[in-house]
Structures are given as structure tokens and as C-alpha cells.
Design a protein around this nucleic acid. Structure first.
Lengths: 193, 193
DNA sequence: ACCTGAACACCGTTCAAGT
DNA sequence: ACCTGAACACCGTTCAAGT
């Protein structure tokens, strides 16, 4: 058991962050791991599958971070989810862009979306509004993460401290709108009963 | 003057939409155009430059659509911009994803952002708030367009009519929040003067 | 001056040969 | 059973040769 799958994926992540996805080839990865090409193909069926695994690995850390946060209130849960996604994007910009580009494989939007969906349903939104709000916030988070990742992996430009504030500014707007909607809906329900 | 640059870019766009970016090679493009590879390299310096041109071409149509819309009110102008971006994403899903992934080349976020920025400054927002609101809406539009484009170019799934409504739902939230902010700011200014 | 075919160095992937 | 080198068909890009 000299060469393990997670070892392959781990160094693939490192190489992608260091030199970009375009510079990653099976041969380069093999020499970096100090092995031939065939052992790679024994662990991972193809390069596409390798990239899928990379995307899934980077995105799966988001779920762990969210679970660590342990927020009870629904809006704080959604906020924690959004921040975790963004933080991962800042930590692994190039792999995050890769993962956003392979949504089917990374499961990034789906997993985050279903977590948030649960939070909103628990909070009392009906199914339709929950889905809409989740979709809207997800689009915002995705777009923010993507832009920050592009900036971070761009030509040596530091992301700047303003981005954090701006991200929270937009996120707050969404959450406040959702809170208002919930209040209006709760009022309706109270009137109806 | 048998083979023009825009001809090359045009068929590149067609091929990308038909078979995906991964299937586009200089040789395939050459045979589709009925010429050799060298004439291609005389018009376009490299494949990367070709993809940059494709991205820029697809994104430039957005500006035209916005100019056609001719909305006077600031919020309608921003709305038209957002819709134009999204519509282009639905019309050319694969090229739009490509363009989003090459922001430096396509100039997509920057051009849209500066248009919208102008609209907000004209409306009376100060520079800081204008920039924040534009960044937030841009992130939302980008994320929405990206997701819809992925769905549209995915495994034969129609985008569904719900997406339009959901997009407007989220966009309305942002614009309403901006309107409230403007009202509050206007009130402050009135009090101060 | 412009187009062609062959060539270079790479890539993903696979196969036959070695231990 | 596992690893190696060579091979296949491709790719982006360039060069020398043709008209």
C-alpha cells in the first residue's frame, strides 16, 4: 500500500493551486508523486474522474466547517453556510473555480442548498419560498466565491479587506429580506388561524 | 479575403455550443471552416486568444441588448442589464460559462459593472454604496447565469419556466433593498441640508 | 504573398513486457 | 500481483517546402 487515492488527490490539489489546472497532467502528477503513470490509472480511472474527485474533496470540507459552526438560529445557519463556502473559495481559489465548473461532480451547490433548505423549512417558510430564497442566496454566494477566487488566482493581486465587508453587506440584504418575508407570512398565518 | 477573423470566431462559437469547449480543437475548427491550420494561426495568434475572442464576442452582445432597452429609471436600467446578462447565458450557455471563467478577457463583469455603477451614481448613491450594491448584484447575476448555463448545457434537461420567476424574485429583493437604502440616504441628506 | 504537409513536443490512455 | 517503457492517437504550434 504505497500509493493511496487520497494521496493522489491531495497532491493534485496542491499542484492545481500552485500552477493552475492547465498545468496539471497525469505525467506531471506521476513524477511529483515519484511513480509511473500506470499506478495512477489503477487508483483513478481517468483524468476527468481525478478532477471530479478533487472538486468533491475541496467542497466536502465546507460541510465539515458548517457542522463545526453549530448555529441554532436559521439565519445564522444560512450565514455560516455562506461564509464557509466563501472561506473555502479564498483558501483554495483554483480548485473552487474548478468545483463550481463541475457542479454535477462536486455536489457543491446541491449539498449546501439542501442544508440551507432544511434550515428555512424548519424556520417556517413554505416549500416554494424556501426553495426560492435558497436558490437566490446560492447564486449570490456562488458568484461571490467565483469572483473572489478569480481575483485570488489572478496576477498576484491580494483580495483586499473590502471584499469581506462587501460580501456581508450583500448577504445581510438577502437575510433581512427573508426575515421580512417570514414575518409577513407568520402574520398571515396568525390571521388565518 | 477568403477567411475573416469574425468568421473563425463565429464557427468557434457554434462548435462550442454544439459539442462543448472540450471538443474544440484547432484542427476540428480548420476542417469545419474548410481550410488548413496555418490560415487560422495567421488570423488568431493562439487557441487561448481564440477563446478570449469568443468570450468577448458573446459578452459584447449584452451591451448591445442593454443599449436597445433604453431604460430611463436607474432601477430599470440595472434590471435590464441583469436580464440581458441572463438571457445571453440562456442563449449561449457554454460560451457564457467560458466567458465567466475568463473574466479578464471577456470583460463581462467589468463592463456590466461600470454601466450599473453609473446608473447608481446618477441615482444619488454615494460611491461606496454604489460599488457595494453593484458588486452584490453582479455576484447574484453571475451565479444565476452560471447555474442556468450549467443546467442548459447539462444532460438534456430543459431549464424550466420556474427559473425566470426565481431570478426575478432574487433580483427584486436586491433592488428593493437598494431603493430603501437610497430613501434612507436621501432623508439623511435632506435633514443635513 | 499565401497555402500545404510534415514535423516537434506534448497530452490522455493502453498494451506488452518484465520482476 | 504489481510496476516499467514503449506505443497509439490526439493536441497546440511551427517550419520548410510548394504555388
Amino acid at each position: 500500500m504505497r500509493l493511496t487515492r487520497s494521496q493522489i488527490i491531495g497532491t493534485a490539489i496542491e499542484l492545481i493551486e500552485r500552477d493552475g489546472v492547465g498545468a496539471l497532467s497525469m505525467r506531471v502528477l506521476a513524477t511529483e508523486l515519484g511513480c509511473g503513470i500506470v499506478p495512477l490509472y489503477e487508483r483513478v480511472p481517468s483524468k476527468a474522474a481525478l478532477l471530479d474527485r478533487v472538486a468533491a474533496a475541496v467542497m466536502s470540507e465546507i460541510e465539515l466547517a458548517v457542522r463545526r459552526a453549530q448555529q441554532p438560529a436559521w439565519n445564522d445557519r444560512v450565514r455560516a453556510q455562506a461564509r464557509a463556502f466563501r472561506d473555502q473559495g479564498l483558501a483554495y481559489p483554483r480548485c473552487t473555480v474548478l468545483a463550481i465548473g463541475r457542479p454535477a461532480a462536486s455536489g457543491a451547490p446541491k449539498a449546501c442548498g439542501e442544508q440551507a433548505l432544511g434550515a428555512l423549512c424548519d424556520a417556517g417558510f413554505d416549500g416554494r419560498d424556501s426553495a426560492r430564497i435558497v436558490r437566490a442566496i446560492l447564486a449570490y454566494v456562488l458568484g461571490s466565491a467565483f469572483r473572489d477566487a478569480c481575483e485570488a488566482s489572478g496576477p498576484s493581486r491580494p483580495p483586499g479587506e473590502r471584499n469581506d465587508e462587501d460580501f456581508e453587506f450583500g448577504l445581510d440584504h438577502f437575510l433581512r429580506a427573508a426575515e421580512e418575508l417570514l414575518a409577513a407570512q407568520g402574520g398571515q398565518q396568525a390571521r388565518a388561524s
